[in-house]
Nucleic acid binder design. Structure first.
Lengths: 113, 113
DNA sequence: CCAGAACTACGATGGCTGTCAAACTTTGAT
DNA sequence: ATCAAAGTTTGACAGCCATCGTAGTTCTGG
């Protein structure tokens, strides 16, 4: 079954701030989160625009999953990704929103000379 | 003069999200921020309860200052610290609040079994 | 003027982690 | 059956950073 290939996801109650921040401090992972937030639907791993090799990308997806920020599931040979926005927001209200908004602010005109 | 001993502070416009997150990802530095938030007045460096040596603490204060999160000034031989909450909130609205609140939630009962 | 307090500056070190290439597994299409 | 596509896993490596001890600087109090 596909389920056997699905890696374990932490329960929302076991998510720690340290893990979440460790996950969000990396710009590549933050880019994954914002792309996921902007996307109209779930994205497969290969559907992201990332400046690293696929093996490195796999590593980043794992960190995000183990931090409880994304949920992954298989569709055929593709691994799909969803943001666990609501669950994260239950535990750390406003955190994800603030970081994503800040990331957009930094990406857009905000960046200094 | 005292002013000569005051290290440089970044303008609020040059603060980057990467620096802020790099600063907040360390638990010691996050503890400094929350202690500062809870304190009724500015605190001198030695007034914090930190699990590291003074030289390491100095390092953490410098990271926080260079990230634009705190402002430092001398009073006699003591270096005082203030949170630049309002300024940071202008650039990254809600971010500092969310992190501090999340930190408190993690510190209190939030910790899993 | 001197001793102590309060920090800072400077190496040095150890561990963590982001990165990649290569090999492997599973799925889907021909 | 075969082959390509999609990701993972493993192992190796380089760079960063939190930490400390020691030495140095500036202020305060006798």
């Amino acid at each position: 079954m596909d389920a056997d290939r699905i890696p374990p996801h932490p329960d929302v109650r076991t998510i720690t701030l340290q893990q979440v921040l460790d996950a969000l401090v990396d710009p590549v992972r933050r880019s994954i989160v914002t792309q996921l937030r902007d996307a109209p639907a779930d994205l497969r791993c290969g559907g992201f625009d990332l400046p690293v090799s696929t093996s490195t990308a796999t590593h980043h997806f794992r960190v995000l999953r183990e931090a409880g920020l994304i949920r992954q599931y298989y569709v055929g040979a593709s691994r799909m990704n969803t943001l666990r926005s609501d669950e994260v927001d239950e535990v750390f209200p406003g955190l994800l929103d603030a970081v994503v908004a800040a990331d957009r602010a930094s990406s857009r005109g905000g960046a200094p000379v």
